[in-house]
Amino acid sequence: MLGGSTVRTAATIALAGAATAAGLDGTGQAAPRLTPEQVKARVDKLYQEAETATEKYNAAREKADAAEKRLRDLGDEAARRQQRLNSARDALGSIAAAQYRDGGIAPVARLMLSDAPQQYLDKAVFAERERARQAAAVAEVRRQLREIRQLRGDARMELASLRSQQEELRRQKKTITAKLKEARRLLSQLPPEQRAAAGGEGGTVRQHVAPAAEAPNSRAAAAVAYAYSKLGSPYVWGASGPHAFDCSGLTQAAYRAAGIALPRTTYAQINAGRRVSRSELRPGDLVFFYSGISHVGLYVGNGRMIHAPNPSAPVRLAPIDQMPFAGATRVV
C-alpha cells in the first residue's frame, strides 16, 4: 500500500506531465497572431469568395422565380382547360341523355311505324349530323384530356426544378453566411483603427458628387446619374435596390432606371452588350473583375467606377485598377 507522500509525489508528476502535454510549461506553440496586412488579405479573399457565392445565389433565385412563375402559369392554364373539359363533358352528357330518351328502337322500325316518313327521314339526316357532331365532341374531349395530362406533367417538372433551385439557394446562402462570419471574426481581432483599414477598400463615399466625365448618350447618362445618387447605400448580398445593393444588383438597378433591363448576375451582364477594351471605356460601361467574373461596377470616367464593394463598405467611387480587371461591356 502506498504512503501519503508517495501518492502526492505521483500526483505531482502526473500533473506536471499533463501540463507539459497541454503546453502549460511555456514551450507550447500558440497560433501566430496575424498582422493587419494578413488579416486584410484573408478578409479580401473571404469577401471575394462570398461574392462569388452571392452571384450563384442570384442566379439560383432568378431561376427559382422563373420556375415559380411558370408553375403558376401552368396551374392557371390547367384550370382553364379543366373548365372547358367540364363544359364539353356536360354537352356529351346531354346528347347521351337525349339518345336514352329516344329509346332503343331500330331506325328502320321507326321509319316503318312513322305516320310521316318524310319528316322522319329529315330527322334522321339531322340525327346523323348530330352523331358526327357528337363524335367530334368526343374527340375534342380526348384531346383536352391529353393536354391536361401534359400540363400536369410539365407542372411536375417545374416543381422539381423549383425545389432544386431552392436547395441551391440554401446552399449558397450557407456558404455566404459562413464566409462573412469568418471575415467578421478576423476583423474583430484587430484594434478599431486597424479594423477599418483591413475591412474595407479604398474609395470615396460622397453624396451629390458631380459625374467625372460626360456620358456618351442619354441612357448611359441616366444609369451613371442613378449610381451617383446611390453613393453611401449599404451593401446587402442579394439586394438590387432601391435602398441596398450587391454589385450586380446596383448595375441592374442603374440601367433599369435608364429603361434597360439587364440580367441579374455578373456572368450574364458581361454578355448583355458589346465587349470593349479597357482603353475604350466610356461612362456607363460595365466593368468586370476577377477571373470568375464575380464583381462588376459602373464606369464613370477618369479611371473610376461606382460599385457596391462588400458588406464592410457602402456603394462608393473607386479606381478600377484596385481589382484584377476581367473585361468590360457597353450596354448602350
Rank of each mutant, 00 (worst) to 15 (best):
S161P: 05
A160I: 02
T251M: 09
G303E: 13
V224M: 13
A96L: 12
V7D: 10
Q166V: 02
P311E: 14
V43E: 14
D90F: 08
A98G: 04
T6H: 14
A136W: 05
Q207P: 08
A41Q: 11
V287A: 09
R131Y: 10
A213N: 04
A59K: 10
M112H: 08
R316D: 04
L262G: 01
G232Y: 00
A18N: 08
R84F: 09
A41H: 02
V236R: 11
Q38M: 10
A91K: 14
V224G: 05
R131H: 09
Y235N: 07
T204A: 12
E55H: 02
R142T: 03
D25R: 02
P234Y: 06
K56M: 13
N302G: 03
K174E: 15
A268L: 12
G203L: 11
R316G: 01
D73P: 01
P36Q: 09
A257V: 00
R131S: 12
D73N: 03
N86H: 09
K181S: 10
Y299R: 09
A155M: 10
T204C: 09
V7A: 11
L231M: 14
V296E: 11
A97E: 14
R256M: 11
P36D: 11
A88H: 10
A53W: 06
Y290N: 09
D90A: 15
A30E: 15
G4Q: 14
S114M: 12
K45N: 13
S233I: 04
A318F: 03
S279Q: 13
L85G: 00
N310W: 04
Q252T: 01
L113D: 10
S218I: 03
A215I: 00
S294R: 08
R101N: 05
A88C: 08
A98C: 07
A127P: 05
A196C: 05
A66G: 02
G153N: 12
F288D: 05
V332W: 07
R195A: 08
